[in-house]
Each structure stands twice: as structure tokens, then as C-alpha cells.
């Protein structure tokens, strides 16, 4: 365990060095993060413009803004911590260089997952938190301590689910080799998480609750911050995230067995 912590520290240091080398990216990524945040918020502003009633069932403008904040925050985690490392796996598989990772005396999944971080995405985390402040400022109240605690737990479960789904998707790279753009596909599925889950109905609602639990990622944490989450939901979230984690680990190990290397 201690060894893995040390490894994580090392990997983070390399990423930090890399980020420090491209200092200007801080500004550019910051700018891009603001622009993307604007694209997430603009539709909400237009939907609610000049109308006071709840346009999305059960959500006022400011409450929906909290969901958007979670969307921006989780997207930052996805693009900063999850995507870069796992994109590297896809490259490794195609080029056959995964051999070098497998040879190392540590767990392969751990090594590839922590191999790269886009540290400047921290700016987007800041943007997401700023959106929370704006939303709660407009509502004129603050989240309760209990709500904050629930939200923190849900942040962990959401990250775990995101990560596990990514592992599941990346595992397909062992079967279909040319899938450079899987990242984009997953990001676009995640796009649907920008709205409160009550906009989905029928089949879509079932899919986005049970198959791809988008509600778990943005809607529930937002409800927790707003102080109206059913405590039972928390239990369901923890169980679901652990289930996803176990499933993805199994699939990863099975897929790894199929890895046949490639000629250099």
C-alpha cells in the first residue's frame, strides 16, 4: 500500500513537472475552460430568460445551475485525471508498448491510470466551484453541513463510477484496435449529464439511471448540496459505485489476458 502511495506521488510529480514546463497552457486552458463553461450555462440562461416558473420539472434556474456546476467539476476530473492516462492505454495497445507497462512489478491498471494528469484542468474545477458560489449566492443561502458531507461522498462515488466506466470502455480497445476517438464518445455520453435527470423520460430515464448512471454523477450531488437528497439514495450510490468498480476490474483483468502484444 505504502509503495503504491509513493508511486502515485512520483507519477504526480512527473505530471507537475510537465505542467510547469508548459506554463502558458495555464492561461490557455483557463480561457478554454471558461468558454466551455459558458457553453454549458448559455442554454440554461436562455431557457429561463424572463421566465420565473420552473421550466425543468422540479428545478428552478439556480438549482439547475448547481447541476451545471457539478457537470463542469466532473468534466474537469474526467479530462484532467481520467482521460489522459487511459488514452495512453489505447496508444499502448495499438503500438504494442503495453509490454513495458506489464513488465513493471506493480499493478498494470494502477500504473496506466496514474501515468498522466492534466494538472491545468484544475482551472475548470475552480470554474465549477465558482458556479456553485454564484448559484447559492443568487438563492441567498448556503448548503448545510450535512448536505456538504453527502455531496462529498457523492463526489467520490461519481468519480469512481466515471473511472470504472472508462476502464470498461478502454477494455474494448483490446478487442477493437483502432479506437483513438473513444475518449470523445464517452465525453459525449457524459454531455447528457448537464441537465437535471428529470428532463429524461421513459426509456432514456431508465438507461440514464441504471445503465449509465448519469443521475448519480450530477443530479444527486446537486440535490445533496441543495439539502433535499433522500438518505436512501446515498446507500444506492455507494452500492452502485462499488458494483461498477468490481465489474470494471474483472473486465480489465479478462481483457488483459487477451492482449497479444504487437510487432514493433
Amino acid at each position: 500500500m505504502g509503495r503504491y502511495l509513493q508511486l502515485l506521488k512520483l507519477q504526480l510529480r512527473t505530471s507537475a513537472l510537465l505542467a510547469a514546463q508548459y506554463r502558458w497552457d495555464f492561461l490557455i486552458d483557463g480561457l478554454i475552460s471558461l468558454v466551455w463553461a459558458a457553453t454549458a450555462i448559455a442554454p440554461l440562461l436562455i431557457v429561463y430568460s424572463g421566465r420565473s416558473q420552473t421550466m425543468i420539472p422540479g428545478w428552478s434556474m439556480n438549482e439547475a445551475l448547481v447541476v451545471t456546476g457539478w457537470f463542469i467539476l466532473l468534466q474537469a476530473i474526467l479530462e484532467g485525471a481520467i482521460n489522459p492516462g487511459l488514452q495512453a492505454v489505447v496508444d499502448h495497445i495499438r503500438k504494442g508498448t503495453l509490454d513495458f507497462v506489464l513488465l513493471k512489478p506493480a499493478d498494470a491498471q494502477f500504473l496506466v491510470s496514474t501515468s498522466r494528469f492534466q494538472l491545468w484542468r484544475v482551472v475548470s474545477v475552480g470554474t465549477g466551484i465558482a458556479v456553485f458560489f454564484i448559484a447559492f449566492g443568487r438563492m441567498g443561502r448556503a448548503p448545510s453541513p450535512a448536505g456538504l458531507a453527502q455531496a462529498t461522498v457523492l463526489l467520490c462515488t461519481a468519480t469512481l463510477v466515471l473511472y470504472s466506466m472508462w476502464i470498461l470502455i478502454v477494455s474494448t480497445a483490446f478487442y477493437v484496435v483502432k479506437v483513438d476517438n473513444l475518449t470523445y464518445m464517452f465525453s459525449s455520453i457524459f454531455d447528457a449529464a448537464r441537465w437535471p435527470s428529470s428532463v429524461f423520460r421513459g426509456v432514456l430515464k431508465a438507461v440514464f439511471t441504471f445503465v449509465i448512471p448519469l443521475a448519480l454523477m450530477t443530479t444527486w450531488p446537486a440535490e445533496a448540496l441543495l439539502g433535499r437528497l433522500e438518505p436512501v439514495t446515498l446507500v444506492y450510490a455507494i452500492a452502485a459505485s462499488l458494483g461498477f468498480a468490481a465489474a470494471s476490474r474483472t473486465v480489465w483483468l479478462l481483457s488483459l489476458r487477451r492482449y497479444a502484444s504487437a510487432g514493433g
Binding site: 442554454p43 431557457v47 421566465r51 416558473q53 421550466m55 425543468i56 420539472p57 477493437v176 483502432k178 479506437v179 483513438d180 476517438n181 473513444l182 470523445y184 464518445m185 465525453s187 459525449s188 455520453i189 454531455d191 447528457a192 448537464r194 441537465w195 428532463v199 429524461f200 423520460r201 432514456l204
Partner: peptide, 28 residues
Amino acid sequence: RAEMFVWVLSTTMPFVMWVMWSSVAERT
């Protein structure tokens, strides 16, 4: 073609927007 198929799947944005707008339009 597999790569292109993934590209196509990743242009789901119109459908995401459609879900929200039609939910809004049904109410007001």
C-alpha cells in the same frame, strides 16, 4: 469505418438538447 462509427456516436449533442427543449416546450 469503426473509427467513423465512433465519431458518429459522439455527435449525440443534438439529441441531448432535444430532450431538454422538448421537456421545456411541453410545459410552456
